[in-house]
Amino acid sequence: MADGRGVLVLAEQTEGQVASISLELIAAGRRLADAAGEPLLAAVAGPEEPARALGAAGADRVYLLDHPDLTPYLLETALPAAEQVIRQARPRVVLLGHTASGKDLAPRLAVRLGAGLVTDATALEYDAGTGGVVGRKPVFGGMALSEQVAQGDPQLLTVRQKSYEPAEPEAGRDGAIERFPVDLSGVERRTRLVERVRERAAAKRLEDAEIVVAGGRGLGGPEGFQPLYELADTLDAVVGASRVAVDSGWVPSEMQVGLTGKMTSPKLYIAVGISGAMQHMAGCSGARTIVAINKDPDAAIFQHAHLGVVGDFGKVVPALTAACRELRDR
Protein backbone atom coordinates (compact mmCIF):
# COMPACT_ATOMS: atom_id res chain seq x y z
CA MET A 1 0.00 0.00 0.00
CA ALA A 2 1.71 3.19 -1.09
CA ASP A 3 0.61 6.81 -0.79
CA GLY A 4 -1.23 6.37 2.45
CA ARG A 5 -3.09 9.39 3.80
CA GLY A 6 -4.23 10.19 7.26
CA VAL A 7 -3.71 8.87 10.76
CA LEU A 8 -5.91 5.95 11.88
CA VAL A 9 -6.46 5.14 15.53
CA LEU A 10 -7.45 1.54 16.27
CA ALA A 11 -9.58 2.20 19.33
CA GLU A 12 -10.63 -0.02 22.22
CA GLN A 13 -13.93 -0.04 24.03
CA THR A 14 -15.53 -2.05 26.81
CA GLU A 15 -19.29 -2.22 27.20
CA GLY A 16 -19.84 0.94 25.20
CA GLN A 17 -17.10 2.99 26.90
CA VAL A 18 -14.11 4.16 24.89
CA ALA A 19 -10.85 3.26 26.63
CA SER A 20 -8.85 6.21 27.94
CA ILE A 21 -5.82 5.13 25.90
CA SER A 22 -7.88 5.53 22.74
CA LEU A 23 -8.70 9.14 23.65
CA GLU A 24 -4.99 9.66 24.31
CA LEU A 25 -4.29 8.30 20.82
CA ILE A 26 -6.89 10.68 19.38
CA ALA A 27 -5.02 13.57 20.98
CA ALA A 28 -1.66 12.36 19.68
CA GLY A 29 -3.16 11.48 16.31
CA ARG A 30 -4.82 14.89 15.96
CA ARG A 31 -1.42 16.59 16.35
CA LEU A 32 0.18 14.31 13.76
CA ALA A 33 -2.72 14.64 11.33
CA ASP A 34 -2.73 18.44 11.61
CA ALA A 35 1.04 18.58 11.10
CA ALA A 36 0.64 16.55 7.92
CA GLY A 37 -2.52 18.35 6.81
CA GLU A 38 -4.34 15.04 6.67
CA PRO A 39 -7.47 13.58 8.25
CA LEU A 40 -7.71 11.80 11.59
CA LEU A 41 -9.56 8.50 11.37
CA ALA A 42 -10.60 5.97 13.96
CA ALA A 43 -11.89 2.43 13.91
CA VAL A 44 -13.74 0.69 16.72
CA ALA A 45 -15.94 -2.36 17.15
CA GLY A 46 -19.02 -2.43 19.33
CA PRO A 47 -22.14 -0.29 19.70
CA GLU A 48 -22.41 3.25 18.34
CA GLU A 49 -21.59 5.18 21.53
CA PRO A 50 -17.80 4.66 21.37
CA ALA A 51 -17.79 5.73 17.72
CA ARG A 52 -19.65 8.93 18.60
CA ALA A 53 -17.28 9.57 21.51
CA LEU A 54 -14.28 9.24 19.20
CA GLY A 55 -15.86 11.72 16.81
CA ALA A 56 -16.64 14.15 19.59
CA ALA A 57 -13.03 13.87 20.74
CA GLY A 58 -11.72 14.85 17.33
CA ALA A 59 -11.78 12.02 14.80
CA ASP A 60 -12.89 13.26 11.37
CA ARG A 61 -14.23 9.85 10.37
CA VAL A 62 -14.94 6.77 12.46
CA TYR A 63 -15.25 3.28 11.02
CA LEU A 64 -17.70 1.27 13.09
CA LEU A 65 -16.44 -2.30 12.67
CA ASP A 66 -19.51 -4.41 12.28
CA HIS A 67 -19.57 -8.11 13.19
CA PRO A 68 -21.02 -9.82 16.28
CA ASP A 69 -17.80 -11.79 16.85
CA LEU A 70 -15.70 -8.66 17.36
CA THR A 71 -16.78 -8.16 20.96
CA PRO A 72 -15.53 -9.11 23.43
CA TYR A 73 -12.02 -8.64 22.04
CA LEU A 74 -10.34 -11.73 20.58
CA LEU A 75 -7.13 -11.55 18.56
CA GLU A 76 -8.38 -14.05 16.01
CA THR A 77 -11.22 -11.77 14.86
CA ALA A 78 -9.66 -8.40 15.68
CA LEU A 79 -6.72 -9.08 13.38
CA PRO A 80 -8.63 -9.59 10.10
CA ALA A 81 -10.98 -6.73 11.05
CA ALA A 82 -8.04 -4.36 11.54
CA GLU A 83 -6.43 -5.53 8.30
CA GLN A 84 -9.63 -5.00 6.33
CA VAL A 85 -10.32 -1.51 7.61
CA ILE A 86 -6.71 -0.46 7.03
CA ARG A 87 -6.75 -1.72 3.45
CA GLN A 88 -9.96 0.22 2.91
CA ALA A 89 -9.00 3.46 4.66
CA ARG A 90 -5.38 3.44 3.43
CA PRO A 91 -3.89 5.58 6.21
CA ARG A 92 -0.28 6.69 6.33
CA VAL A 93 0.01 5.99 10.05
CA VAL A 94 -1.82 3.57 12.35
CA LEU A 95 -1.79 4.10 16.11
CA LEU A 96 -2.66 1.45 18.71
CA GLY A 97 -2.36 1.52 22.49
CA HIS A 98 0.52 -0.51 23.95
CA THR A 99 -2.12 -2.42 25.84
CA ALA A 100 -2.83 -6.12 26.20
CA SER A 101 -4.62 -6.10 22.86
CA GLY A 102 -2.13 -3.78 21.18
CA LYS A 103 0.76 -6.05 22.11
CA ASP A 104 -1.11 -9.01 20.66
CA LEU A 105 -2.31 -7.37 17.52
CA ALA A 106 0.27 -4.89 16.27
CA PRO A 107 3.17 -7.22 15.38
CA ARG A 108 0.90 -9.66 13.53
CA LEU A 109 -0.85 -6.82 11.76
CA ALA A 110 2.52 -5.43 10.68
CA VAL A 111 3.55 -8.77 9.18
CA ARG A 112 0.22 -9.08 7.38
CA LEU A 113 0.46 -5.61 5.90
CA GLY A 114 4.17 -5.79 5.11
CA ALA A 115 4.49 -2.75 7.39
CA GLY A 116 6.95 -1.70 10.05
CA LEU A 117 6.17 -1.16 13.72
CA VAL A 118 7.54 0.80 16.66
CA THR A 119 6.25 -0.48 20.01
CA ASP A 120 5.74 1.22 23.37
CA ALA A 121 6.44 4.72 22.05
CA THR A 122 6.28 7.41 24.72
CA ALA A 123 6.52 10.33 22.30
CA LEU A 124 5.60 10.77 18.63
CA GLU A 125 6.82 13.40 16.24
CA TYR A 126 5.87 14.14 12.67
CA ASP A 127 8.91 14.30 10.37
CA ALA A 128 8.00 16.69 7.56
CA GLY A 129 11.07 15.64 5.59
CA THR A 130 10.00 12.03 5.19
CA GLY A 131 6.30 12.48 5.85
CA GLY A 132 6.60 9.85 8.51
CA VAL A 133 6.37 9.55 12.27
CA VAL A 134 9.31 9.14 14.62
CA GLY A 135 8.54 7.23 17.80
CA ARG A 136 10.72 7.55 20.88
CA LYS A 137 10.82 4.48 23.07
CA PRO A 138 12.79 3.19 26.04
CA VAL A 139 15.18 0.27 25.47
CA PHE A 140 17.51 -1.71 27.74
CA GLY A 141 14.93 -1.50 30.49
CA GLY A 142 14.87 2.27 30.18
CA MET A 143 18.64 2.81 30.31
CA ALA A 144 18.53 4.32 26.84
CA LEU A 145 16.01 5.96 24.54
CA SER A 146 15.68 5.00 20.90
CA GLU A 147 14.11 7.14 18.19
CA GLN A 148 12.68 4.76 15.64
CA VAL A 149 10.87 5.02 12.33
CA ALA A 150 8.68 2.20 11.10
CA GLN A 151 9.54 1.48 7.47
CA GLY A 152 6.95 0.77 4.83
CA ASP A 153 3.31 1.62 4.45
CA PRO A 154 1.51 2.27 6.68
CA GLN A 155 3.63 3.05 9.72
CA LEU A 156 2.36 1.26 12.80
CA LEU A 157 3.07 2.44 16.32
CA THR A 158 1.86 1.27 19.71
CA VAL A 159 1.82 4.06 22.26
CA ARG A 160 2.34 3.69 26.01
CA GLN A 161 -0.64 4.58 28.17
CA LYS A 162 -0.59 8.03 29.74
CA SER A 163 2.03 9.35 27.33
CA TYR A 164 -0.58 11.85 26.15
CA GLU A 165 -3.48 13.62 27.81
CA PRO A 166 -6.78 12.17 26.55
CA ALA A 167 -8.62 14.30 24.01
CA GLU A 168 -11.69 15.96 25.50
CA PRO A 169 -15.01 15.47 23.78
CA GLU A 170 -16.51 18.71 22.46
CA ALA A 171 -20.23 19.27 22.48
CA GLY A 172 -21.55 19.55 18.99
CA ARG A 173 -18.43 18.09 17.38
CA ASP A 174 -18.83 14.82 15.58
CA GLY A 175 -17.06 12.67 13.06
CA ALA A 176 -18.64 10.96 10.09
CA ILE A 177 -19.54 7.46 11.27
CA GLU A 178 -19.30 4.79 8.64
CA ARG A 179 -20.56 1.29 9.33
CA PHE A 180 -17.84 -1.11 8.10
CA PRO A 181 -18.95 -4.72 7.69
CA VAL A 182 -16.15 -7.14 8.53
CA ASP A 183 -15.81 -10.43 6.67
CA LEU A 184 -14.75 -13.23 9.00
CA SER A 185 -15.84 -16.08 6.77
CA GLY A 186 -12.26 -17.06 5.93
CA VAL A 187 -11.08 -17.12 9.53
CA GLU A 188 -10.30 -20.52 11.01
CA ARG A 189 -11.49 -20.28 14.60
CA ARG A 190 -9.06 -21.97 16.96
CA THR A 191 -9.18 -19.77 20.05
CA ARG A 192 -11.91 -19.37 22.65
CA LEU A 193 -12.23 -16.75 25.36
CA VAL A 194 -13.34 -18.69 28.42
CA GLU A 195 -13.66 -15.78 30.82
CA ARG A 196 -12.32 -12.38 31.74
CA VAL A 197 -11.65 -11.88 35.42
CA ARG A 198 -11.41 -8.46 37.07
CA GLU A 199 -8.73 -8.30 39.73
CA ARG A 200 -8.67 -4.60 40.38
CA ALA A 201 -9.02 -3.94 44.07
CA ALA A 202 -11.64 -1.42 45.10
CA ALA A 203 -8.95 0.81 46.54
CA LYS A 204 -7.15 3.60 44.68
CA ARG A 205 -5.13 2.81 41.60
CA LEU A 206 -1.36 3.17 41.48
CA GLU A 207 -1.47 4.95 38.14
CA ASP A 208 -3.66 7.73 39.52
CA ALA A 209 -2.08 8.09 42.96
CA GLU A 210 -0.73 11.46 44.09
CA ILE A 211 1.63 9.80 46.54
CA VAL A 212 3.17 6.35 46.14
CA VAL A 213 5.20 4.42 48.72
CA ALA A 214 7.03 1.52 47.05
CA GLY A 215 9.05 -1.33 48.48
CA GLY A 216 11.71 -3.55 46.96
CA ARG A 217 14.22 -6.28 47.66
CA GLY A 218 15.58 -4.45 50.70
CA LEU A 219 12.37 -5.12 52.63
CA GLY A 220 13.40 -8.76 52.92
CA GLY A 221 9.93 -10.29 52.81
CA PRO A 222 6.19 -9.61 52.88
CA GLU A 223 6.30 -8.48 56.51
CA GLY A 224 8.73 -5.74 55.42
CA PHE A 225 5.80 -4.05 53.71
CA GLN A 226 3.92 -3.51 56.98
CA PRO A 227 5.63 -0.20 57.86
CA LEU A 228 5.00 0.94 54.27
CA TYR A 229 1.27 0.26 54.56
CA GLU A 230 1.23 2.33 57.75
CA LEU A 231 3.14 5.20 56.14
CA ALA A 232 0.81 5.05 53.13
CA ASP A 233 -2.17 5.17 55.44
CA THR A 234 -0.88 8.33 57.10
CA LEU A 235 -0.09 10.01 53.79
CA ASP A 236 -3.23 8.74 52.01
CA ALA A 237 -0.87 7.09 49.55
CA VAL A 238 -0.94 3.91 47.46
CA VAL A 239 1.63 1.17 48.03
CA GLY A 240 3.64 -0.17 45.10
CA ALA A 241 6.46 -2.65 44.68
CA SER A 242 9.46 -3.50 42.55
CA ARG A 243 9.50 -6.51 40.23
CA VAL A 244 11.75 -8.39 42.68
CA ALA A 245 9.20 -8.07 45.48
CA VAL A 246 6.44 -9.31 43.17
CA ASP A 247 8.46 -12.16 41.68
CA SER A 248 9.45 -13.24 45.19
CA GLY A 249 5.76 -13.57 45.98
CA TRP A 250 5.77 -10.89 48.72
CA VAL A 251 3.00 -8.83 47.15
CA PRO A 252 0.51 -9.32 44.29
CA SER A 253 1.52 -8.40 40.76
CA GLU A 254 -0.97 -5.50 40.52
CA MET A 255 1.39 -3.59 42.83
CA GLN A 256 4.35 -3.77 40.46
CA VAL A 257 5.75 -0.45 39.28
CA GLY A 258 8.11 -0.46 36.35
CA LEU A 259 8.63 -0.88 32.63
CA THR A 260 6.54 -4.05 32.58
CA GLY A 261 4.36 -3.00 35.52
CA LYS A 262 2.36 0.10 36.29
CA MET A 263 3.46 3.55 35.23
CA THR A 264 2.99 6.10 37.98
CA SER A 265 3.24 9.88 37.89
CA PRO A 266 2.68 11.01 41.48
CA LYS A 267 3.80 14.28 43.03
CA LEU A 268 5.74 12.19 45.58
CA TYR A 269 7.31 8.74 45.14
CA ILE A 270 8.98 7.18 48.18
CA ALA A 271 11.20 4.23 47.20
CA VAL A 272 12.07 2.01 50.17
CA GLY A 273 14.67 -0.73 49.85
CA ILE A 274 14.62 -0.35 46.08
CA SER A 275 17.96 -0.52 44.28
CA GLY A 276 16.98 1.81 41.46
CA ALA A 277 17.28 -0.46 38.41
CA MET A 278 16.24 1.40 35.26
CA GLN A 279 13.31 -0.89 34.54
CA HIS A 280 11.84 0.19 37.87
CA MET A 281 12.67 3.87 37.41
CA ALA A 282 10.83 3.75 34.07
CA GLY A 283 7.68 3.30 36.15
CA CYS A 284 8.21 6.32 38.40
CA SER A 285 10.40 8.75 36.47
CA GLY A 286 7.29 10.86 35.96
CA ALA A 287 7.17 11.59 39.69
CA ARG A 288 7.72 15.20 40.63
CA THR A 289 9.76 14.29 43.69
CA ILE A 290 11.44 10.95 44.34
CA VAL A 291 12.59 10.09 47.87
CA ALA A 292 14.90 7.13 48.46
CA ILE A 293 15.30 5.24 51.71
CA ASN A 294 17.98 2.58 51.44
CA LYS A 295 20.72 1.26 53.67
CA ASP A 296 23.20 1.04 50.77
CA PRO A 297 24.71 4.48 50.06
CA ASP A 298 25.91 3.24 46.65
CA ALA A 299 22.49 2.11 45.49
CA ALA A 300 21.65 3.46 42.04
CA ILE A 301 18.39 4.88 43.40
CA PHE A 302 20.31 7.79 44.89
CA GLN A 303 21.20 8.88 41.36
CA HIS A 304 17.51 9.24 40.58
CA ALA A 305 16.12 10.58 43.84
CA HIS A 306 15.72 14.22 44.78
CA LEU A 307 15.86 13.48 48.52
CA GLY A 308 17.39 10.50 50.27
CA VAL A 309 18.03 8.89 53.60
CA VAL A 310 20.72 6.25 53.98
CA GLY A 311 19.50 4.01 56.76
CA ASP A 312 17.58 0.98 57.94
CA PHE A 313 14.04 1.24 56.63
CA GLY A 314 12.79 -0.67 59.68
CA LYS A 315 13.72 2.33 61.80
CA VAL A 316 13.38 5.18 59.30
CA VAL A 317 9.93 4.40 57.92
CA PRO A 318 8.05 4.06 61.24
CA ALA A 319 9.79 7.24 62.43
CA LEU A 320 8.76 8.98 59.20
CA THR A 321 5.17 7.85 59.74
CA ALA A 322 5.22 9.24 63.27
CA ALA A 323 6.79 12.53 62.12
CA CYS A 324 4.26 12.95 59.31
CA ARG A 325 1.41 12.20 61.67
CA GLU A 326 2.73 14.79 64.07
CA LEU A 327 2.99 17.43 61.31
CA ARG A 328 -0.49 16.56 60.10
CA ASP A 329 -2.05 16.83 63.54
CA ARG A 330 -0.33 20.09 64.45
Binding site: A110, A115, G116, L117, V118, V134, V139, G142, M143, A144, L145, S146, E147, Q148, V149, A150, Q151, G152, S285, A292, F302, Q303, H304, A305, H306, L307, G308, V309, V310, G311, D312, K315, V316, A319
Partner: peptide
Protein backbone atom coordinates in the same frame (compact mmCIF):
# COMPACT_ATOMS: atom_id res chain seq x y z
CA UNK B 1 14.57 -3.79 7.60
CA UNK B 2 11.19 -2.69 8.89
CA UNK B 3 12.42 -0.56 11.77
CA UNK B 4 15.04 2.16 11.29
CA UNK B 5 16.71 3.63 14.34
CA UNK B 6 17.51 7.28 13.88
CA UNK B 7 19.18 7.84 17.19
CA UNK B 8 20.01 6.10 20.45
CA UNK B 9 20.87 8.14 23.52
CA UNK B 10 20.94 7.98 27.27
CA UNK B 11 18.41 10.07 29.18
CA UNK B 12 19.91 13.11 30.89
CA UNK B 13 21.65 12.41 34.17
CA UNK B 14 19.67 13.62 37.14
CA UNK B 15 20.64 16.36 39.52
CA UNK B 16 22.38 15.40 42.73
CA UNK B 17 20.31 13.87 45.48
CA UNK B 18 19.91 15.90 48.67
CA UNK B 19 20.84 13.47 51.41
CA UNK B 20 19.13 14.02 54.73
CA UNK B 21 21.66 13.13 57.40
CA UNK B 22 21.30 13.01 61.17
CA UNK B 23 22.68 11.18 64.19
CA UNK B 24 19.81 8.73 64.43
CA UNK B 25 17.32 7.25 61.96
CA UNK B 26 14.54 8.88 63.94
Amino acid sequence: ARIAQQRLYQPEARVACELVTADTPE
